[in-house]
Amino acid sequence: MIADLPAVLVLNAKDNVGVVPANVDAGRALVNGVVAAERIPRGHKVAISHIAEGAPVLKYGQIIGYATKAIQPGEHVHLQNLAILDLALKHEFCVDNAPAVMVPEERRRTFDGFDRGNGRIGTRNYIGILSTVNCSATVSRYVAEHYARRFREAGHDNIDGVVALTYGGGCALNLKSEGGRILTRTFKGYARNPNFGGILMIGLGCETFQYGPLVEEAGLEEGKTFRTMMIQNQGGTRKTIDAACEMIDDMLPDVGRIRRTPQPLSGIKLALECGGSDGYSGISANPALGVASDLLVKEGATTVLSETPEIYGAEHLLTRRAARPEVAEKLLSRIDWWRDYTARNDAELNNNPSFGNKAGGLTTILEKSLGAVAKGGSMPL
């Protein structure tokens, strides 16, 4: 019940701010004799002790920014008095990397999944359409919509659906550039993703990002459940859609024959990503995911913190858990890349949190990151 909630949540004994779980009106007693000096919106921060101008503001026992003016106990702490200044974090490597206590092999659990071979285990059985250039994106979407209607009318035993993965580039892209390398790596990942029982790649024909070299480099071979096609070879949009549907129709029986079988939890690879974050995320959903992450890793599974920009300001906590020094160095090199990227593009690291994040109580990227990394639990990096 809301009536049973404390007026303020203090998350660490070092903190000089707390989070109010519900709207607080001026005059309400908070903690340790501190009284709210003004209305504090739910999920937002309130000072629980005096914070001098320029002094660090602490939440989770960590620095989330610095006071831009003196803040009195009971005052709302947010954009009007908190900002990022130069932050010098101490990066210690591997000091918290205690050997993980794993579940013994004979007691490890299983789930019903799709065995794709070579240790790849899926939780779904989709057919994926990959458009290798923006010019084939519309065709890809039309084909996926055709099967969405068809599956709604009749369904298809054991196939979760046909989905189109499209994007807006690929035409005159320099494949040796950073964007080109990321795109190539992403497509290889899609093509090998164990949640796909079948793949159809659709290109235009004249784009720089050709699927031929990609397929060869990835060690893929065309067959019943992996096909490729070019719009210019088919003679236009309508003919391509018809030909693509014929190819997928040919795939359906083979993809549909794949059945779920008991698979080890160690085959799970779980991607962890924040949705619409607010002041509660770092104290509720994200720590809960961290517990789930630990449970899976103890079974031999892998979890991934998938948003490097939402690690900045908390990377020192992860380097302490690095399995090896070179792992910590690799993480810091990505953070350095992100600093350089924002500088080159006239941006700033604190562009994140978004407007909605701030409305929900998050003030700085340091605060958001400290809550975001909680999804990674406590196991070695």
Rank of each mutant, 00 (worst) to 15 (best):
P6T: 08
V8W: 04
N16L: 06
G18L: 02
V20M: 05
V20I: 11
V24N: 03
V34L: 04
P41C: 07
A47C: 08
H50D: 12
G54M: 13
V57P: 00
L58E: 01
A67C: 10
G74Q: 04
E75W: 03
N81D: 13
N81A: 07
I84F: 06
E92A: 14
D96G: 06
N97S: 15
P99W: 07
P99H: 08
V101I: 14
G119D: 03
G119L: 04
T123N: 08
T123S: 15
R124C: 09
Y126K: 12
S131A: 15
S131G: 12
R141H: 09
Y142M: 14
V143S: 03
E145Y: 09
F151E: 04
D157A: 15
N158A: 14
N158E: 10
I159F: 04
A172H: 14
N174P: 15
S177R: 09
E178A: 11
R185P: 06
F187K: 02
K188A: 12
N193I: 11
N195D: 13
G197R: 04
L204G: 01
T208L: 09
G212V: 10
V215D: 03
A218V: 08
F226Y: 11
M229N: 06
M229W: 04
Q232N: 08
G235W: 00
T237I: 13
K239W: 02
T240F: 00
E246W: 10
D250N: 10
R257D: 10
T261H: 06
Q263I: 08
L265Y: 07
S266I: 01
S266N: 01
I268H: 00
A271S: 13
G276I: 02
S277G: 07
Y280A: 07
S284Q: 07
P287Q: 08
P287T: 07
G300E: 02
A301Q: 00
T302P: 01
T302C: 10
S306P: 09
E307D: 13
P309C: 08
I311V: 15
A314V: 07
A314W: 04
A314D: 07
H316V: 10
R321W: 01
R321V: 02
R321Y: 02
A323L: 14
R324C: 11
E326Y: 09
V327K: 08
L331N: 00
L332T: 08
L332D: 04
Y341P: 03
N345E: 14
N345K: 13
D346K: 12
A347K: 12
L349F: 06
S354H: 05
S354P: 00
G361K: 02
L362R: 01
E367C: 09
E367H: 11
G371N: 06
G376H: 04
S378H: 11
S378A: 11
L381Q: 05
